[in-house]
Design a binder for these strands. Structure first.
Lengths: 138, 138
DNA sequence: TTGAATGCAAAACGTTTGCAATCAG
DNA sequence: CTGATTGCAAACGTTTTGCATTCAA
């Protein structure tokens, strides 16, 4: 049950938080904007304000329940963090998002930061791609 | 002279464009937001509207004179493109930006896109770091 | 009971746009 | 001269905030 998860994260198990967590967990598309979450809530007959969605998602981010991505211009996208880290590939034609992991890259990242006297805290790594051998073009 | 550069890029050499290009080229910090460029223009006694700055930067981007980055939330950052591609490392304590290049990573990126049936068009790759062995913390 | 969380509407933020005036070629 | 470019102010979409109300513990 989501209540446990929330309490474990140090958050009061309020209705909006539980519902939003459910939506995020059950959505077909794991990458959701605040607006998208909001619409899903309305459709599920949950009268939760957009402001609350933003506030809750920000809390979830701080608590480590979700990860925020700023793909390109405009709005943020959130996804529930299931532990395993991964990066993203965005198809410029269809907008489709593919997740990937590459340990070699992760290793090099650490080495680069280290070489400059830094410790790697986080990274954003997004590949913008296009279907191979196809006329598909935005 | 900047006029040549603009004409070569297919843009009329208007005063705002020349001034903005000068600012971008001579700034201490090569990574500038529209607002920052605007303020620099004001300080240099050039009465150019903020809207024009945005329009000109967008044109410069299309013309390949500058590259736009969406580091994290909020605003875009532009830098004059001197041909050689590079990625960025942002210090979370000081906000300092370090540029780096790594061919091995670039190679792997292409391979990953390829493996998924895509062609790599572009990528955003930013490392968020913190000074090593220091209490410095935002 | 009581401080935390919510809803609403209003504000803030960076950015874009419509339009009349101005400018480069 | 003439279409491209500019300035201004108003509009935009996303996100945040102030405040009175409601809720979880």
């Amino acid at each position: 049950m989501e209540k446990q998860e929330l309490r474990k994260a140090g958050l009061k198990a309020t209705l909006p938080r539980v519902k939003i967590l459910q939506i995020m967990d059950s959505a077909d598309d794991r990458h959701m904007s605040a607006e998208k979450v909001y619409k899903a809530l309305i459709e599920a007959d949950n009268d939760i304000g957009l402001a609350t969605v933003y506030r809750v998602l920000a809390q979830f981010e701080s608590a480590g329940l979700v990860v925020r991505h700023n793909f390109d211009g405009g709005h943020s996208v959130f996804e529930t963090s299931r532990g395993e880290h991964h990066d993203h590939m965005v198809c410029m034609g269809t907008g489709k998002i593919v997740e990937f992991t590459n340990h070699e890259i992760e290793r090099i990242q650490k080495a680069i930061a280290d070489k400059h006297g830094y410790e790697l805290v986080d990274h954003h790594h997004v590949l913008y791609v296009r279907p191979k051998n196809e006329k598909a073009k935005k």
